[in-house]
Simulated scan of single mutants.
Amino acid sequence: MSETHPQEPHGAGIGQKLNWLRAGVLGANDGIVSVASLVVGVAGATTDNSALLVAGTAGLVGGAISMALGEYVSVSSQRDTERALIEKEREELRTMPAEELDELTGLYRQRGLSEETARQVAIELTEHDALSAHLEVELGIDQDDLVNPWHAALSSAVSFTIGALLPLLAILLPPVQWRVPVTFVAVLIALAATGAVAARVGGASPVRSATRLVIGGALALIATWGIGTLLGTTGIV
């Protein structure tokens, strides 16, 4: 059946794949925007390479660790909740099997099956794997495909680092007069690309997603560059 619709996700492990892919796309986007805003803001105040390198590197390392920790905590909480729900459902099946069978029948009735068909489906699925049947229909959980916090954390940290390297190199390598324009162009192109990828993952419109990210990124860069320039020209820094 999967050959009939090759663009649709099928098979075990799709939840984990989408989880680390989501974390990777978000991590890359955050790395691009946050470090670009940081170095462009510093570049507005000073042309000193050391200051730009220190600021950009600190933003990269701190951001990568923060992203990894945030993803780990978030996904760990989700996984703990899923495990608790699985144990609760397992206990209910052990202590009240008849009530659970009635519940499963009712859930299939809500999906449009007749009473007789819903009952038969519930009985057959219960005989085959009662826990999996209830988890799928009641909670939308696959006990063999729980999200992995380590995968999400690693994907987020690596992608943030890769994304952050782009604006860091763009601000350091060109001549002084071209630093900010080159960084602007490189960052906006990268944001458009990550927006399109994120849209593909979620099945949304690539153009709409890319446009939102480009506009948001441009506003962030303009704001930080303006603040940095203001602080530099007024002699505050």
Results as ranks from 00 to 15, higher is better:
residue 33 V to N: 00
residue 176 V to K: 13
residue 20 W to F: 14
residue 89 E to H: 09
residue 38 L to E: 02
residue 19 N to F: 03
residue 95 T to G: 07
residue 61 V to P: 04
residue 132 S to P: 05
residue 205 S to E: 12
residue 44 G to E: 00
residue 18 L to G: 13
residue 42 V to P: 00
residue 143 Q to G: 07
residue 29 N to M: 08
residue 199 A to N: 10
residue 219 L to D: 12
residue 106 G to N: 07
residue 36 A to Q: 01
residue 100 E to A: 09
residue 38 L to H: 02
residue 12 A to T: 12
residue 142 D to C: 13
residue 189 I to Q: 03
residue 39 V to W: 00
residue 187 V to D: 00
residue 45 A to K: 07
residue 157 A to S: 12
residue 11 G to E: 09
residue 63 G to N: 01
residue 58 A to E: 12
residue 2 S to P: 15
residue 177 Q to N: 11
residue 79 R to E: 15
residue 55 A to I: 09
residue 2 S to T: 11
residue 116 E to D: 13
residue 231 L to R: 04
residue 216 G to C: 04
residue 112 G to I: 07
residue 97 P to W: 09
residue 15 G to I: 09
residue 206 P to N: 11
residue 210 A to S: 13
residue 84 A to V: 10
residue 178 W to S: 14
residue 157 A to L: 05
residue 1 M to G: 12
residue 125 L to I: 15
residue 80 D to H: 08
residue 35 V to S: 01
residue 212 R to G: 14
residue 122 A to Q: 01
residue 95 T to R: 06
residue 91 E to A: 11
residue 19 N to A: 14
residue 94 R to F: 11
residue 236 I to F: 05
residue 129 D to W: 05
residue 133 A to Y: 01
residue 14 I to F: 06
residue 6 P to G: 04
residue 171 I to E: 01
residue 221 L to C: 02
residue 155 S to T: 14
